Simulated scan of single mutants.
Amino acid sequence: MTRLTDLELFVRTADLGSLTAAAKAMDWSPAAASAAVKRLEATWGVAVFVRSTRSLRLSTEGERMLPHVRAALSAMTEAQAVVSKTRSALRGELQLSMPSDLGRNILLPWLETFLQRHPDLSLRLHFSDRTADLMRVPLDMAIRYGTLRGSAQVALPLLLNNPRLLVASPQYIARHGTPATVAELAQHEALSFMVGDEVPKTWRLCVQGQWVDAPVQGRRNANDSEVVSRWAVDGLGLAYRSQIDMAAHIAAGRLVHINPHWQGEPGDLHLVVPGRKQVTAAVRALRDHLVPLLAQLAAGSAQHKR
């Protein structure tokens, strides 16, 4: 396959009348420039230059090839400009994966506002609590909890102060009381969110500066985060969910933050893309749109903690 840089050297040499001058203009060594010409001549099967000890000129075949090579390089430049314009423009389709509860009940209206601001954009949304493999499925980005380790993917922060909270409805607390110690959690109905098919046996909490794995048990477990939230609002037990997911419920009084001095695990929220080249203007615009809205919601939730 012919290298574009070899074609560029061919044109530069023809314009300057000197292979040495063309190599210098492209910051190449004379040996690298000579090798490039040999590759072209081997690929095309003709000599493109006529050389002497004092001069260099295009051969008849080289003169015939030159306008076609110029056109090819011009077409590549135009193609690169189109790609660059596409990357910087807010148009096209974005495929986005997000957790079910967060996506349906918090992000959806904000995404609608984003679309109204950018009429040349369209969204294809995927709601799932499973972690999508951005290298295998046709997704542009995913909203995820936690941090990436040992991955070539890029994580753009959306909300960094987003701990998990222990919550229950006022009705549940009225019937069953509030657990005063971590040990008492085992006596309550735990509404657990399953990662995959595994039901968690403990919830990790920091009590008086010490992290402990509190044993929990319950008859209601789901791999859909929205279902766990509904169970909690319906007064069926305790839930251990991220602050941003519970923010609206806490602000409306549907749920209460139990023992705020018990710190839950961090649940930092990120916008994840497959690589740096996929961080387009549209991706950055979406992140800039969501960050202040998430921060405002989290701040409102913090004011309503019990």
Score class of each variant (00 low, 15 high):
residue 305 K to Y: 10
residue 268 D to E: 13
residue 70 R to A: 10
residue 161 N to Y: 09
residue 291 V to E: 06
residue 20 T to M: 00
residue 238 L to A: 04
residue 90 L to M: 14
residue 272 V to C: 03
residue 269 L to D: 08
residue 284 R to E: 09
residue 238 L to D: 03
residue 216 V to G: 06
residue 166 L to Q: 01
residue 244 I to L: 11
residue 60 T to R: 06
residue 236 L to M: 14
residue 30 P to C: 07
residue 292 P to C: 05
residue 286 L to F: 08
residue 189 E to P: 10
residue 107 L to F: 10
residue 271 L to N: 09
residue 18 S to F: 04
residue 124 R to M: 14
residue 215 P to S: 04
residue 23 A to T: 02
residue 190 A to Q: 11
residue 69 V to E: 03
residue 212 V to K: 03
residue 36 A to P: 02
residue 244 I to G: 07
residue 258 I to S: 05
residue 48 V to T: 09
residue 54 R to A: 10
residue 143 I to D: 02
residue 229 S to A: 10
residue 196 G to C: 13
residue 1 M to E: 09
residue 231 W to F: 11
residue 277 K to H: 08
residue 301 S to L: 01
residue 99 P to R: 06
residue 8 E to V: 09
residue 208 Q to E: 12
residue 195 V to Y: 11
residue 60 T to C: 03
residue 280 T to F: 06
residue 234 D to W: 05
residue 67 P to D: 08
residue 168 A to E: 07
residue 190 A to H: 15
residue 38 K to P: 00
residue 51 R to C: 04
residue 153 Q to S: 11
residue 183 A to P: 02
residue 3 R to S: 03
residue 80 Q to A: 15
residue 227 V to G: 00
residue 225 S to P: 03
residue 43 T to D: 10
residue 176 H to F: 14
residue 188 H to R: 15
residue 258 I to Q: 04
residue 46 V to W: 00
residue 89 A to P: 08
residue 242 S to M: 07
residue 87 R to F: 09
residue 146 G to L: 00
residue 13 T to N: 02
residue 298 A to D: 13
residue 306 R to P: 08
residue 97 S to D: 06
residue 272 V to R: 03
residue 123 L to M: 12
residue 209 G to I: 13
residue 245 D to H: 13
residue 264 G to H: 05
residue 10 F to P: 00
residue 194 M to N: 14
residue 56 L to A: 08
residue 273 V to Q: 02
residue 225 S to N: 06
residue 168 A to Y: 06
residue 194 M to E: 14
residue 152 A to P: 00
residue 206 C to K: 15
residue 186 A to P: 01
residue 274 P to N: 07
residue 208 Q to N: 12
residue 171 Q to Y: 02
residue 222 A to Y: 02
residue 32 A to N: 05
residue 37 V to T: 13
residue 268 D to H: 09
residue 15 D to E: 14
residue 209 G to V: 14
residue 252 A to N: 12
residue 156 L to T: 04
residue 139 L to F: 10
residue 305 K to G: 04
residue 259 N to M: 13
residue 136 R to Q: 09
residue 175 R to P: 03
residue 300 G to A: 00
residue 122 S to A: 13
residue 28 W to N: 00
residue 220 R to S: 06
residue 223 N to P: 04
residue 172 Y to M: 01
residue 133 D to Q: 07
residue 6 D to S: 04
residue 74 S to I: 11
residue 1 M to V: 07
residue 5 T to K: 00
residue 248 A to N: 08
residue 93 E to C: 10
residue 221 N to Q: 07
residue 124 R to T: 15
residue 85 K to V: 12
residue 111 L to F: 06
residue 139 L to A: 05
residue 120 D to M: 13
residue 250 I to P: 08
residue 40 L to C: 00
residue 118 H to W: 15
residue 169 S to E: 05
residue 260 P to S: 09
residue 263 Q to Y: 01
residue 120 D to A: 15
residue 296 Q to P: 00
residue 206 C to H: 12
residue 275 G to N: 15
residue 164 R to V: 11
residue 18 S to K: 01
residue 196 G to H: 12
residue 131 T to F: 11
residue 66 L to D: 05
residue 281 A to M: 07
residue 202 T to A: 05
residue 192 S to I: 14
residue 220 R to T: 05
residue 272 V to P: 02
residue 136 R to G: 03
residue 126 H to P: 01
residue 206 C to P: 03
residue 173 I to V: 14
residue 31 A to Q: 09
